[in-house]
Design a protein around this nucleic acid. Structure first.
Length: 486
RNA sequence: GCGGAAGUCGUAUAGUGGCUAUUACCUCAGCCUUCCAAGCUGAUGACGACAGUUCGAUUCUGUUCUUCCGCUCCA
């Protein structure tokens, strides 16, 4: 359980005030559950993306990346099951305010019936197939199906909630021209499975990684950037020989958990911020699934999903596209002494929400520290980002504008700027500038003073400890690079 | 989508059916100072939006948008 208070409102305000994340279209009152990344948020996002990409693609010779289009052939979403599963007719009870999936309500109703039940189910299937919502409501009312909570038959009309955004391609608005914005990035990998396997001469087991936007028309989108209508996923589909999926599933569970832990190691004396949550009820495509959950300000919530998707997706695409999705495995099966031969690979998926990872980083890093002494009340807000994801790595601050200190500082900026993002500031007192950098999460500040002109040293000040030490001006770039690559 | 609550400068706040809408921090310009939010002078900037009632609405009413809390949903 989270023992700290929910500081999400403070984080949201901080993100806006310091240029990390703004409500989208704010001058027009905003757009529900859509946010824009500002000048520092975009750096944070980019750094996290790079870390993930490096750990998945660069560190594994059998994993390559792609970037597939957001627009895809409409049949893909029929094959994947999204057209059917994403658009269930729903009905609300007006007294209890409970919402039901119509098919669940009716199936629950007929559960204890025999002959009459089958009759009703047959009717329901026919009505569902015909998209006859009025008929479905009539069926519910005629049979006096009651809400389990309120016990009444006071129902709204049957409504359909399609969680996929649609748009038109081409000038003629016929149904065949309706395409969907992808609700997940995975299908872009599955439909390119053979392209990548063949052109990359990939041998199983191998993986395809992708970072990209996906869109879901959520009925309820809440929790700042936790659940947005437009969001970004970082995911990898790992293709394996059937029968080995279990061990690969366990392998990726561990690898992915360790990635999160390496980014945010557990603080001493504190409970772990991450945990696994195994799915008991599995989705239609999976034979094993779990979430990596993070202790967000609003409690433990899903950050990443690890799913063993079997051969469901590739089989479906083979069925709908009428193209073979199989792989020829030359390795020798010890049981038979012959090659494994043709098969449709099984898939283990790791899929992490980029925006959620950003929120987890913010939640982890955001701290209000009391620095009061007996003489003076004082406090600071500091973002303790790991150096690798900090938007600005180094702030260069001349103690004052005069006496040529600014020139030395600017020379240092020019030396460092092609290696990492630097920030230059000469306004206000040095203490104020340090605190401003704390609020942005900048790990290092160096101050150029008069002594610099004499002996070529500067003060380096550390964000987390607030300690300062004297180092050679010529060493500064190396110190930052060293910390960055540790 | 349902129920509840709330929207005042960038942030946090005060207040009002009627005078130039309060204060602090922030931001900007200048002076002074120079190693952890110093000081002085000045400046920018807000009643979420649209209607209605009214001589007059930021204030009352309605609608709408957005946010938060709870439900619901979560392939």
């Amino acid at each position: 359980m989270a023992t700290e208070q929910n500081n999400l409102p403070a984080i949201i305000a901080h993100c806006k005030e310091y240029g990390f994340i703004f409500p989208s279209s704010e001058v027009y009152d905003g757009l529900s559950a859509v946010y824009d990344y500002g000048q520092w948020g975009v750096e944070l996002k980019k750094n996290i993306k790079d870390l993930w990409w490096k750990s998945m693609v660069y560190m594994n010779e059998n994993i390559v990346g792609i970037d597939s289009a957001i627009f895809m052939h409409p049949t893909i979403w029929k094959a994947s099951g999204h057209v059917d599963n994403f658009s269930d007719p729903m009905i609300d009870n007006l007294d209890s305010k409970k919402r039901y999936r119509v098919d669940h309500l009716i199936e629950g109703f007929v559960e204890e019936m025999s002959e009459k039940g089958k009759e009703i189910l047959a009717k329901m299937d026919a009505l569902l197939a015909a998209d006859d919502f009025a008929g479905l409501k009539q069926l519910i009312v005629d049979n006096q199906m009651k809400c389990a909570v309120s016990g009444t038959c006071n129902w709204t009309d049957v409504r359909q909630f399609n969680l996929m955004f649609s748009t038109q391609v081409g000038s003629v608005a016929e149904e065949s021209d309706t395409i969907y914005l992808r609700p997940e990035t995975a299908q872009g990998i599955f439909v390119n499975f053979l392209n990548v396997q063949k052109t990359g001469r990939m041998k199983i087991p191998f993986g395809i990684a992708q970072i990209g936007k996906a869109f879901r028309n959520e009925i309820v989108a809440r929790g700042f950037i936790f659940r947005m209508r437009e969001f970004e996923q970082m995911e990898m589909q790992f293709f394996v020989r059937p029968g080995t999926q279990k061990e690969w599933y366990e392998h990726w569970k561990n690898v992915r958990m360790n990635w999160h832990l390496s980014l945010f190691p557990p603080l001493e004396g504190r409970e772990a911020k991450y945990r696994f949550h195994d799915h008991v009820k599995l989705a239609h495509y999976a034979d094993a699934a779990c979430d990596i959950e993070f202790d967000f300000p609003m409690g433990f919530k899903e950050l990443e999903g690890i799913h063993s998707r079997t051969d469901f997706d590739l089989t479906q695409h083979q069925l709908y596209s009428k193209k073979k999705m199989q792989y020829f495995d030359n390795d020798i099966d010890e049981a038979t002494g012959k090659p494994y031969g043709n098969y449709i690979p099984y898939v283990v998926e790791t899929s992490v929400g980029l925006d959620r990872t950003i929120l987890s980083a913010l939640a982890h890093a955001y701290q209000e520290e009391d620095l009061s002494t007996p003489e003076k009340q004082d406090s600071r807000v500091v973002l303790k980002f790991p150096i690798k994801i900090a938007p600005i790595k180094l702030a260069v601050l001349p103690l004052m504008k005069k006496d040529g200190l600014a020139e030395i500082a600017k020379d240092l900026m020019n030396e460092c700027r092609d290696s990492f993002l630097c920030f230059y500031e000469e306004k206000d007192s040095i203490g104020k500038r340090y605190r401003r950098m704390d609020a942005l999460g900048t790990p290092f500040c160096v101050t150029v003073d008069h002594q610099t002109k004499e002996d070529g040293t500067v003060t380096i000040r550390y964000r987390d400890s607030m300690e300062q030490e004297r180092v050679l001006l010529s060493d500064v770039k190396g110190i930052v690079l060293n910390a960055l690559h540790k």
